[in-house]
Each structure stands twice: as structure tokens, then as C-alpha cells.
């Protein structure tokens, strides 16, 4: 792929840049470099649009992986700017992460809403953002709901009542075992009867 050799590597020397088999280039960076990388992508390489900021919670490794997805109409190329944000929450009850990401809303206005969603759903702390207020949820008191340690089933069982009338449901595995044992005992009984005859 010439784009990565001609453009990305000369512009960002010293960064870990990979390309996967779907043609997505990925730049792995530290949080401190985010603003520099994003504005250089925007100004020097003409990546006009920030498509979205995706976030995946890798709870077993202890970080949130943020992917800033950029797309350039000029080169027809997609670039993921990927960073790992430690997922520990502050202990002051605010339910937001200790580490913060800088806001990109001055470069792309729609980043405002992407970051607001991350702030609400994953508890990512954002600095330099002008409207960090509730977005989808209303009066949410628990931990941010898209984090993996939030148990939806538990939440539903605690918040809602189930309609009665379905208690006669039975477990297939135990019933199957019971039927098999009943049949087996019948067979042995039958065998006993035959033997007696």
C-alpha cells in the first residue's frame, strides 16, 4: 500500500503504524499526542472528517480502547488513531476515569457529541469540552452503563417486576434426565417381569 509508505510514515515517523487486511491503517499513540496527531492529520494530510470515536472496554486488560476513526475523501483511506485509556474510576463518587482525554471539538464540531456520549456511557473524563451533561440517560445513579462491569440483567431484575403466569416452565435438561431414568427403570422392570415368567 503506497499511502502508508508515502504519506503516513513520513508524516509520523517513530509511531507504530500497522495496516490490516481490510485496508485500515492504525496508529497506536499515547494520550498526550492525540491533539498533535489529530490536527496534523487534519491540516497536513487533509483528513476532513472524523467519522466516529469508538470505544471498547477490555476489562481483563484494564483499559478502554479508544479508536478515533478518520476518513479522507481525497485519498479514500481510513485511519484509526488508537489509544488505551486506563479504566480505573475516580474514588470521589463522580464515576469518571482518572485519566482524561482532550476534546477535539475545536477541530471537528461533531466530536463534541461523540465525546459527550463517551463521557456518559463509558465514564471517560474529557477536558476542554463545553457541554458535559446527560445525553441519553436521565438521572443515572449507577456506574456508566456501557462498561463491562455493569450487569444489565441484574439491573433489570432489581428495577422491574415480571408478570406472573410463567412459573410452570420447566428445565429441559432435568426433565430429559428424569424421563430417561423413568424409561430405564421401566425397561428394567419389564426385564424383571420377563425373567419371572
Amino acid at each position: 500500500m503506497s499511502f502508508i509508505n508515502d504519506k503516513l510514515i513520513p508524516t509520523f515517523p517513530g509511531y507504530n503504524i500497522t495496516t490490516d487486511d481490510q485496508g485500515i491503517h492504525k496508529i497506536n499513540i499515547e494520550i498526550d499526542n492525540l491533539i498533535t496527531i489529530a490536527s496534523r492529520l487534519h491540516n497536513e494530510l487533509n483528513f476532513e472528517s472524523l467519522q466516529t470515536i469508538s470505544c471498547a472496554d477490555w476489562i481483563e486488560d484494564g483499559y478502554l480502547q479508544l479508536n478515533y476513526i478518520f476518513y479522507s475523501y481525497e485519498f479514500n483511506q481510513t485511519v484509526f488513531v488508537s489509544l488505551n485509556l486506563p479504566r480505573e474510576l475516580k474514588d470521589d463518587g463522580s464515576k469518571r476515569t482518572i485519566s482524561t482525554i482532550p476534546s477535539l471539538q475545536n477541530i471537528w464540531p461533531q466530536a463534541n457529541h461523540f465525546e459527550r456520549e463517551l463521557w456518559e456511557m463509558f465514564g471517560v473524563s474529557v477536558t476542554g469540552h463545553n457541554s458535559l451533561k446527560e445525553f441519553f440517560l436521565e438521572d443515572w445513579q449507577q456506574i456508566p452503563p456501557m462498561r463491562r462491569d455493569f450487569d444489565t440483567l441484574d439491573f433489570v431484575n432489581n428495577s422491574f417486576e415480571f408478570r406472573p403466569g410463567r412459573e410452570d416452565a420447566m428445565d429441559v435438561a432435568t426433565e430429559r434426565k428424569r424421563v430417561r431414568e423413568a424409561k430405564a427403570s421401566e425397561v428394567t422392570k419389564g426385564a424383571d417381569v420377563n425373567e419371572q415368567k
Binding site: 410463567r166 410452570d168 416452565a169 420447566m170 428445565d171 429441559v172 426433565e175 430429559r176 424421563v179 430417561r180
Partner: peptide, 18 residues
Amino acid sequence: IDMIKPEIVKNAKNSSEL
């Protein structure tokens, strides 16, 4: 979907009779 006990089991091969 719940698995429930029918009044009569119509299929002899019904392994769990549900």
C-alpha cells in the same frame, strides 16, 4: 418460549416430554 408439560405427550420420541 417456555417449555411446559402437555396434557398428553403425543410423540413417543419426545425426550423431555415437554
